[in-house]
Structures are given as structure tokens and as C-alpha cells.
Write a protein that binds this DNA or RNA. Structure first.
Lengths: 135, 135
DNA sequence: CCGAATCCAGCGTGATACTG
DNA sequence: CAGTATCACGCTGGATTCGG
């Protein structure tokens, strides 16, 4: 640490090309991941699967409000990205279990950092929004 | 640490109500922040402002590809959330400087954690997507 | 120089109904 | 139980134009 100055050792602190090319921003892994976890259900599903493996309808009930369609889409995307694994048991009726992959589990930590920041500073943001004149 | 098991001390590790109420998910500070940083330009602007203060057109040139409209919108939102401060110099022509607030600066660290994760595991995600059969 | 206003295309999201 | 298919809608994001 270097005292009061907020210096962050990170890829974000690296020198950026000027101007930042549009192509580079589009293909940026950081942007890619952020947009992914920024969608409506992904993080909640990851967190639930981070606690234990879940069956499809188990998730469906746990996430109250999500449609079958969105749950399926969310899981498919996560599976394609290698964050979630899908295990099918050929029973009748069929049962499918979802769980985090090792890669998916590693996402929990940085995600937690951001989540904790959000919770910690939630009131400051609310206050700022209040001053800004709206909800 | 508890060995091989991936345990994360965080709000994300807390017990979730079952089912997670839709209302709670909508109003969740974590969801709120994630969706914010998940939009197209926010993070890039935050990073640039984290390096130094910028004038409007300076940002506009630095972020090559962003429209005036989106830059304005992004900055306004960040300002309303108390992450960015706007300073107007009543010159002719007018000049406006933007910079991170103290709150905004604190966001850099958790954001960096996620960014570093993205960069570190980018190839694994690409590989998984390749196996999944698409771009 | 720094915006606001308007218009418009695309995508994320959801409701509903249907299937193996 | 675990999905798929179809349709519809709102919101994000972009192009363009106008104003102080």
C-alpha cells in the first residue's frame, strides 16, 4: 500500500492506447465479462451454484421471478463460457444437475469484492441519487 | 482458508432467502452496481478518469467510438451516483472537467479484481466457447 | 466547447404455449 | 422434469440535428 493515494496494481492501471481503439474495446475481455455478469440473472445463478449444485427446477424455484426461458438461456451461456457444468441423469423423469466448474468457482472471489463494495457503499450512492433529484 | 473447498468470505456467501424474492433481487445493490458497470462505456470512462481528470472532448477523443450522446449520458449517470464530479470553468468557450470522486476512486479496486480475473481467464473462456461450437 | 432533443435500430427480457 | 418456440415490449445505444 502507498498511503492515502489510491493506487491500484491492475490491468486497469496499465497505460491505455490513446485513443482507445473501438475494436479493442469491443473485443476487450474485461468488457466482455462485465457485460456478462451485468445481465439480469447471471450473478444470482452463479452464487446459488457456488453454494451447492442445483437441479433445474430447484434453481427455478430458488430464483423466484425468473422465467424458464431466461433460466435456460443464462445456464446455457454460462455453460458455453465454461463457468457452469451440466450433468444429465438419464432417469424418468429426467433430472439435470448444474454446478460451477473450477473456472466458475474462481470467479466468486473477484465477484465478491465488487458485491461487497456495492453493499458497503450502497447508502452513499442512494444519497447521491437523492441529491440528484430523482428516485 | 479451508483447503480445497472454495469458500469466499463475502456478502455473496451469506445465506440467501429461499426463494430469493423478486423484489429483493430488483432492488439489490449488487445487481444495481453490476448492471451499471456492465453497460458499454462506464468502466472505460471510470478507468480513464482514475488516471487523471479529463475534459469532455478529451474523453471524447480518448474513447474513440463513443458518441457525444453516450458520453454525456454515461457521465451524467456516474455523476448522479456520486462516482464522478463535474467542474465547470466559466470561460469562453466553456470548459468542463470531470474527475472521480473519492467514492468513485474506491470502486477501482474491486473493479480491478474482476478485470484481472477477466484477463487471466480470458483464454479459458475462449477455449470453452470454441468447444461450444460458435464464435 | 459542451451539451440537449429527436428519431430509430437492435437486443435483452418476459409471457405464453408446446414438447420429449 | 427440463426444456423449446413464438411473439411482444421496453430499454440501451447510435446518428443526426439544434442550441447556449
Amino acid at each position: 500500500m502507498s498511503g492515502t493515494h489510491t493506487h491500484v496494481p491492475s490491468v486497469l492501471a496499465a497505460d491505455l492506447p490513446m485513443p482507445v481503439p473501438a475494436s479493442e474495446h469491443e473485443a476487450c475481455p474485461v468488457t466482455d465479462v462485465l457485460r456478462r455478469v451485468g445481465d439480469k440473472w447471471t450473478v444470482l445463478v452463479i452464487v446459488l451454484l457456488g453454494q451447492r449444485r442445483h437441479r433445474f427446477n430447484e434453481l427455478h424455484r430458488a430464483v423466484d421471478g425468473i422465467s424458464q426461458r431466461m433460466l435456460t438461456r443464462t445456464l446455457r451461456t454460462l455453460e458455453q463460457d465454461g463457468l457452469v457444468e451440466r450433468e444429465v441423469h438419464p432417469t424418468t423423469p429426467p433430472s439435470v444437475e448444474y454446478g460451477l466448474t473450477r473456472l466458475g468457482a474462481t470467479l466468486l472471489q473477484p465477484l465478491s469484492a465488487l458485491a461487497d463494495w456495492a453493499v458497503t457503499h450502497h447508502d452513499e450512492i442512494s444519497a447521491a441519487r437523492g441529491r440528484a433529484g430523482g428516485s
